[in-house]
Structures are given as structure tokens and as C-alpha cells.
């Protein structure tokens, strides 16, 4: 599991050339490179040997039935879940474990982990806004207190980001006064304020009333078109089909099928994917 001896197995991901795991970031390093991610709770394996490379600018949608491990996998990418084994590189840099003195991996300390996480932002299913801060306060919190950006600068950028998601007038509102869709758009602004290399979406519309799903998806569509690197765990099939560059289909903790949206939705080649899609077609 040494970080400098990662093997890129053929067919395991996007643009494999076996030299992507260089310790320093290069312009064409994958935004994320996950290798052989396994996760077990007690004796239950929820992720088995998942590989994923995502190129800068790419949008990947992870689909799969409930319990397939897609959310757990997403949470492994920013180390909110610690994989039982496997490695994750964000923009060429490891997260979660570092090579130790003896060459064996050692867990990152709190400071190292926090630093690694500044490269990846996450949008949560239940928003996870901080209720004691205004919309703008939520957006500037991490840029100011983690990245150390000057407050005035962060506030100006925060206002721009809120404007971008259509919430310029709600900058000083507290989360409890916002609708679900508005909360999620604030959460997206908060994510963007970190200028992340990679943006993770954990079922961002699953907790929303149906009429609010559209406004959130519209913002995400804009981001994808604007070249933001994104991994989206979702049940919104129409969105995935329209916006994703690539679909990764998980079932039983494994990658069962991966391909372009067109290939996946029109001619899925595994029986599992066919059954999954049949349920949504109805």
C-alpha cells in the first residue's frame, strides 16, 4: 500500500498511464485518484476494491441502489470515512495517510488532514449549514479561518458566490429562514468559496421538496459546464444523463459498470445496471 508504488491497473479508471501518482501536483494530475478502496464495518464489507480517477474538469455521477456503498465511497475521498485499505490522491497529493519513516503508511495528524481537506469541498444531503452564522457567514467561515484569507476579500467573494446561485439578497439571512433549496445553494456557495480542486456532492437533492430540486440542479449544471471538477452521488437520472461526462455504477460495494451516460443509459451491458435502470424507466 505504499503511496509511491501505486499500481494503476488497466481499465480501472480514466486516462491511466501509471505515472499519475506522482507526489507533487502537476497540471494534468487527476483531480482525484482513488486506488483499491475497501471499507468494512465489523465483518461487513461495504466497499470492495474501488478504483476511480477523475480528470480536472470532469463531472462523474455515481449511481447505484441504496446501500450500494456510493455515499460511503464519496466520504472516503475526503476521509470523512477512513477506508480499511486503499489510497486517495487529491490533485496528486495524498489524503488520510502519508508514507511514514519506515516507508509504511501512517495516519495523518489533525493538522495534516485539515490541510489536505482544503483541496476538496463537500455538499451534504442535509446541507449541514452552521445555524449560528448567516448565509454569508457560512460561506466565508472556512476561507477566513482555514485558508486565512482577509475577511474583506472573503466577504466580497462570498457575495459574488451567493449572487451566482441567485441568493444575493439573502446574504444576511440565517439558515432557519431559508427554504431547503436555498440552503443547499448556500451550501454550494460555501463549497465554492474554498476554490476546491474537487467538489463532492452527497445526494444533494434527496432531502429537498420536489419543487426545489430543479433550482439546485440548475446551479450544479452551470458548475459542470463551467469546468468545475465534480463527483455527484445522486438518484437524479435525468441530471446524470445530461450533465455527467462519465457514469460509475456501484452495486454491492463494487464498481459494476462505468461508461459515458449515453452508453450507460441506452445500452447498459451488465444485467445489474439493466435492472437498476428498468426501475427508473417505469
Amino acid at each position: 500500500m505504499r503511496i509511491d508504488s501505486l499500481e494503476h491497473r488497466p481499465g480501472s479508471g480514466f486516462r491511466d498511464d501509471g505515472r499519475r501518482a506522482a507526489p507533487d501536483a502537476s497540471p494534468d494530475a487527476p483531480a482525484v485518484s482513488a486506488r483499491r478502496i475497501c471499507k468494512a464495518y465489523g465483518g461487513t464489507e461495504v466497499l470492495r476494491d474501488i478504483d476511480l480517477d477523475v480528470a480536472p474538469g470532469e463531472t462523474v455521477c455515481i449511481l447505484g441502489p441504496s446501500g450500494s456503498g456510493k455515499s460511503t465511497f464519496l466520504r472516503c475521498l475526503n476521509w470523512l470515512e477512513e477506508p480499511s485499505s486503499g489510497t486517495v490522491l487529491l490533485d496528486g497529493q495524498p489524503i488520510g495517510r502519508l508514507p511514514g519513516r519506515d516507508g509504511r503508511p501512517r495516519p495523518m495528524n489533525a493538522r495534516e488532514l485539515a490541510a489536505a481537506r482544503t483541496r476538496v469541498s463537500m455538499v451534504f444531503q442535509h446541507f449541514a449549514l452552521w445555524p449560528h452564522l448567516t448565509a454569508l457567514g457560512n460561506v466565508v467561515e472556512a476561507p477566513v479561518h482555514v485558508l486565512g484569507r482577509p475577511r474583506s476579500e472573503a466577504l466580497a467573494e462570498g457575495r459574488r458566490l451567493l449572487e451566482r446561485v441567485g441568493l444575493a439578497e439573502r446574504a444576511d439571512a440565517y439558515p432557519h429562514t431559508l427554504s431547503g433549496g436555498q440552503k443547499q445553494r448556500v451550501a454550494i456557495s460555501r463549497a465554492l468559496a474554498m476554490r476546491p480542486k474537487l467538489l463532492l456532492f452527497a445526494e444533494p437533492t434527496s432531502a429537498l421538496d420536489p419543487e426545489m430540486v430543479g433550482e439546485v440542479l440548475a446551479v450544479m449544471r452551470d458548475l459542470a459546464r463551467g469546468g468545475q471538477t465534480m463527483i455527484v452521488v445522486t438518484h437524479e437520472m435525468a441530471f446524470a444523463r445530461e450533465v455527467a461526462d462519465r457514469i460509475v455504477f456501484l452495486d454491492g460495494g463494487r464498481v459494476v459498470e462505468t461508461g459515458t451516460p449515453d452508453a450507460f443509459f441506452t445500452r447498459p451491458h451488465t444485467e445489474r445496471a439493466q435492472r437498476f435502470l428498468a426501475r427508473y424507466a417505469r
Binding site: R111, T118, F124, W130, A142, H145, V146, L147
Partner: peptide, 9 residues
């Protein structure tokens, strides 16, 4: 979790 994910120590 959100605070940790955003790099707050």
C-alpha cells in the same frame, strides 16, 4: 462533519 470536511482543525 461539515466543519472537518472544510478543514477546520
Amino acid at each position: 462533519e461539515a466543519a472537518s470536511a472544510y478543514g477546520l482543525r
